[in-house]
Design a protein around this nucleic acid. Structure first.
Lengths: 303, 303
DNA sequence: TTATATCCATAGAGTTTCTCTATCGCTGCC
DNA sequence: GGCAGCGATAGAGAAACTCTATGGATATAA
C-alpha cells in the first residue's frame, strides 16, 4: 500500500528505455530488483503498467497516461531535495541580515563582496534599519542575523560576537588638527564640530564621551545622515566624529580621518541572532566570516 | 541518502501541527517513529528542519522555505496515485472504442447509456470509422476496443467475441411484403430494392446472399449512408436491407422492419482488441458488458 | 525445425530499514 | 521542588529490499 520513491523512479526508467535489463543497468541495480519494484508498484495501484512479452516491454494505456505526470512530479521532488542539499552544503542560499545604516553602507558591502568571492552561490538580503527594527526583524525571523549597536541582552536574542566600534574624527586635509600627536576629547572640543542628530547612536556616544571628559561642546551644525555631515566638513563648517567602521563613507581625497585616542569614543557593536534558532548554513558561515574578520572591521574587541 | 515518501509526509505533518506528538496521532504512528523519520530526512538533506525545544517545535528558515513546495509536490504525487487507484478499481476511466458507423449510431449509444448507469465514472471516446480504420486504430493503440464486421484474424489482433449481425428488410408500413410469412431472398428479389453502395460491408453481404440464392436483383437506387437509404424507403422508391443492429436508425413510425429468414443475410461481427495488451479496467468491464448483452444486441452468435 | 541467446519472472538468503515499546532527559508550570 | 508534557534514544522484532541463481518463454539463426 505504501509507495517508495524508488518505485516510480524505476517505472519511469523502464518506460523510457523499454527494457527492464537496460533500466537496471542505468539505475545500477540488478534486473530482478526492478522486476520486484515494478510488481510492487502495480500491486499497490492495482493495475498493470506494462505488458511483458519475453521479447518486448510495452506500456499499457494506464501506464502511458501515468508516465508524463509521474515523471514531472518525480523531477519536482528530486529538484526540491537537490536544492535543499545545495543549501545544506553551503553551495547556495540567501543570507538575510539587518544592519544599522552605517554598517550597511560602510563595512558590509566590502565584507559581502569578499564573502561572495569565496561563496559564489551566496546571495544577500540586506536591510538597513534603526536598532529597534533590527531587533524586531530578528524576533520575527525575517532576518537571520543582525548587526547592531548598543548592548543587547534579551533572553530571546543571542550575541554571536561583540566588538567595539571606535570613532574617528574627519577633517579637511589642511585642518590644523592633523598636526596633533594624539586626538582626545579636549583637542576635539577646541574646534567647531558637525554633530550627528540627537537620537542617533553616534550622538549618544559622543555626548557621553565629552560629558565624561567634563566638556560640553556646542555643535556648529547637526546632520541626520553621515553623508550630510561629511559634506559639511568638506565645506569647512567643522570637524565631525564618525564610527571608524564607516570609513568607506568618508574616504574622500580632500578629507582625512584619525582614530580618537579616548576609550569613551567607541560604541559597542554586536552580531546577533535569535536564540535557540538554527541558522541556515550560509548564514552561519557568513557569521563566522564576520567574526574572523572583526579585527579588521572594527577597531577593538570586547571580552 | 534515499528518501521515502513517508519522510516528507511526516515533515509536512509536524510542520503543520507544530508538534511531533500530535502529528504522530494524525498519521497513526508512534511518536518515536516520527522522531526517527524526521531525523533521517534531516540527515539525508544535511540540514536541520526543526528547532526542537522540549516545549515547542519551530521550523528553521530552511524548513519554512522547503515546506510549501514539498507539500504541493507531495499532494501532486498522492493525487496521481489516487487517480490511478480509481482507474484500477473501475471507479473512473475512459473507454476508447472504434466502431463501424452502423454500430456507433445504432446499438452503442444505448449500450453505453446502460453501462454508464452502472458505472457513473465511465466516460467514452467513440470513433465511428470504416472497418480498415478500426484495425488501424487498434494497432496504433489509439483505441482499446474495436467493434467491426467481417472475419478478423491477424496475429496482432485478438477477438474478444464474435457474433452474427442478421439483416432486416425495411419497408413502408403499407407495403405488401408485410403480409409475407417468411422473408427470403426470393421474396426480396420481387420488389425494387434500395441498396447500400458498392464497397460497404452491407452490400457485400447482400450481394453474396442473393448470389448464393441464384438471384441477381438490380438496385432501384443506391445510397452511401443508411439514413439516405431509409429516406428513399420512406419516399416509396423501394425496400432496403440493413443490419438488425442498426434498428435504432430505422425505427420510424411510418416504417416497419422484419428479420430476413436466410442465414446468408448476416454479417460476422467481432469485438476486438490488440493481442497481448492489457485492457484498462473499465474497458475490460465494458467488453464483458457487451459480451454479456450480445444476444440482445445482435441476432445470433457464432461459436 | 532445432538450437541458442535474450529477456523477464521467481525463489531464497542475507542485509538493511522500519516501527514498536520502554525509558530517559529536559523544560515550564503550579 | 515536584509534576506533567514533550521529544530523543535504545533495543527487539518485523517488514522490505536487493542480491545471486535459476526457470520459462520467445525471436533469431543455423
Amino acid at each position: 500500500m505504501d509507495i517508495n520513491v524508488r518505485q516510480p523512479r524505476s517505472f519511469v526508467a523502464v518506460a523510457k528505455l523499454g527494457s527492464f535489463t537496460q533500466a537496471a543497468a542505468a539505475l545500477h541495480v540488478s534486473q530482478p530488483t526492478l522486476s520486484v519494484q515494478i510488481r510492487r508498484l502495480e500491486e499497490s495501484l492495482g493495475l498493470w503498467l506494462f505488458d511483458r512479452n519475453p521479447r518486448s516491454v510495452a506500456l499499457t494505456r494506464m501506464g502511458r497516461e501515468l508516465l508524463p505526470a509521474l515523471e514531472r512530479t518525480l523531477q519536482d521532488l528530486e529538484s526540491l531535495l537537490s536544492d535543499a542539499r545545495d543549501v545544506a552544503s553551503e553551495r547556495r542560499g540567501v543570507v538575510r541580515i539587518a544592519a544599522l545604516p552605517s554598517f550597511a553602507a560602510g563595512i558590509l558591502p566590502d565584507v559581502i563582496g569578499g564573502f561572495r568571492g569565496q561563496n559564489p552561490g551566496a546571495s544577500f538580503a540586506l536591510k538597513d534599519v534603526i536598532a529597534s527594527r533590527v531587533l524586531a526583524l530578528i524576533r520575527s525571523e525575517e532576518v537571520d542575523l543582525g548587526l547592531t549597536g548598543g548592548d543587547v541582552s534579551f533572553p530571546d536574542i543571542e550575541t554571536i560576537f561583540a566588538a567595539r566600534d571606535e570613532m574617528s574624527v574627519v577633517y579637511p586635509e589642511s585642518h590644523p588638527i592633523g598636526t596633533q600627536r594624539r586626538i582626545t576629547a579636549c583637542v576635539l572640543a577646541k574646534y567647531p564640530l558637525v554633530m550627528m542628530d540627537q537620537g542617533t547612536s553616534v550622538r549618544a556616544v559622543t555626548d557621553l564621551a565629552f560629558n565624561r571628559a567634563g566638556l560640553l561642546p556646542a555643535p556648529a551644525s547637526e546632520a541626520t545622515y553621515m553623508m550630510t555631515a561629511i559634506g559639511m566638513v568638506r565645506a569647512g563648517i567643522g570637524l565631525t566624529i564618525l564610527p571608524t567602521s564607516a570609513r568607506e563613507i568618508f574616504a574622500e581625497p580632500s578629507l582625512r580621518s584619525r582614530k580618537i585616542s579616548d576609550n569613551n569614543f567607541a560604541r559597542p557593536v554586536a552580531l546577533i541572532k535569535k536564540a535557540h534558532r538554527t541558522l541556515p548554513p550560509l548564514s552561519r558561515l557568513f557569521a563566522e566570516f564576520l567574526q574572523a574578520n572583526r579585527r579588521g572591521l572594527f577597531a577593538g574587541n570586547r571580552p
